[in-house]
Write a protein that binds this DNA or RNA. Structure first.
Lengths: 233, 233
DNA sequence: ATTTTTGTGTGTTGAATAGCATTGTTTTAA
DNA sequence: TTAAAACAATGCTATTCAACACACAAAAAT
């Protein structure tokens, strides 16, 4: 638990949608029940089948939400950046988690009990709308991703994954280096392919001058071409 | 538009979750703005990219929600039975539809303007919770289905599709004939495979005495075996 | 009744991609 | 600093499944 003043410093008001819809009293209530957690790189935040208890708010770092499938193969469902919220879906659905979350880099998160969130929703329509909107967006995204993963070929799937990384995390100051440094295995898990094929396909993108690669540092050289492959490949 | 008394006959109160959470005044309001539509077999209810306007309530018949992908290939996202609701997600997400819906058999639906639904949510917390719960369930289902479709092999995917049909529509009075009669092509679209492979795989299930097939009439002879294949295949 | 269309069943072929093995390289840890 | 572990790159092989072709049956249209 942290003091309210500290919390206000951490949460920039214009970014934290939830924060802005709360009344002063509710802000107090949340601030007093907002527990900061620090996670190391690769540390699990919660695991599939766990009982949901908290609304997680990512303040700093990067988080992946994933599902373990057949033969240890993993599918990355969504990626989170500050300030975004997760962990609430299973609680609302009244079921255990169907996916796990993990910190991709050292991350700072706030935990708010879902019991409290529920109580606030009971008295604050705007918070209800926040979650209705959020869930609706994610459901559309999930349905779309399903078709992308099942129907596109490898090139299209990897290109799509790269555009997701662009849209989620953007570029470094040079305007072309991806601001996330993922293992090839995670790129593969995002695109539903084996690590070998992620590496291979990255190489062909390099040879086609669409990207350059230096270790985990990926530069997007020809973004229109990438989006074209993502759309039609 | 139909009279309130008629509507009450159509909607059995214990089945229609939305109906039960409304106040008498709201029920009036909905009843007066509830427009009955009849759809023929294979008729589109709404199409991808349309602007969402109505909450659709399936009163009689069967509806599939699907997305057209590469090369005319179709992915069935969800199946609906009476009394279930759909068409609201895109409106809540404030975007055009990302999927289409179609009546699989002659169906009766009610349309309620989303504007009205929004107004009622503004004054009725329970209706907000209904949609939060509904969206949360569907999002979990979509995430799970994504991994099933991408990671399971053909047998597992078709077995899973059949269990979905069992869970959604159940059996005829004999307790083993599926209460839905789908084209092989739709079975394929549900399971992310070609029609040929759906036919082939159905045949192997028959030869393994897991099901019997007579045209579109499918009997589930060994449900435990089917669920086992769905889980581990 | 006959033709056309649509749906079903089956075999063959080839392309896409997973699996595996090997080697080199980078990162982490002792 | 060296050893160990994890990661990246690449070639080869095996498998899965889509594409296509064709035959036949059933349903719909004429």
């Amino acid at each position: 638990m942290i003091k309210k003043s500290t919390l206000k410093n951490i949460i920039s008001e214009d970014l934290a949608e939830i924060w802005t819809v709360l009344t002063p009293e509710e802000k107090h209530l949340v601030a007093d029940n907002f527990v900061i957690h620090n996670f190391k790189k690769n540390q699990i935040i919660y695991a599939e089948n766990d009982e949901p208890e908290y609304l997680w708010c990512l303040l700093k770092g990067k988080v992946k939400m994933f599902k373990d499938g057949i033969g240890g193969r993993q599918q990355i469902l969504r990626l989170y950046r500050p300030i975004q919220y997760f962990g609430y879906r299973a609680y609302f659905a009244n079921e255990p988690y169907v996916s796990s979350t993990l910190a991709l880099e050292p991350s700072t998160l706030g935990a708010i009990s879902m019991k409290l969130v529920t109580e606030i929703i009971e008295q604050n329509r705007k918070l209800a709308w926040f979650f209705i909107h959020e869930l609706s967006k994610h459901l559309g995204g999930s349905d779309t991703k399903m078709v992308n993963l099942t129907q596109k070929h490898i090139r299209g799937r990897l290109a799509e994954a790269l555009t997701i990384l662009i849209d989620n995390y953007g570029f470094e100051d040079d305007g072309e280096t991806l601001k996330i440094y993922m293992a090839r295995e995670d790129l593969a898990n995002l695109s539903n392919m084996t690590t070998s094929n992620a590496i291979r396909t990255l190489s062909t993108f390099v040879s086609e001058k669409i990207i350059t690669v230096d270790g985990r540092r990926i530069k997007i050289v020809n973004e229109p071409a990438l989006r074209k492959i993502s759309k039609f490949g």
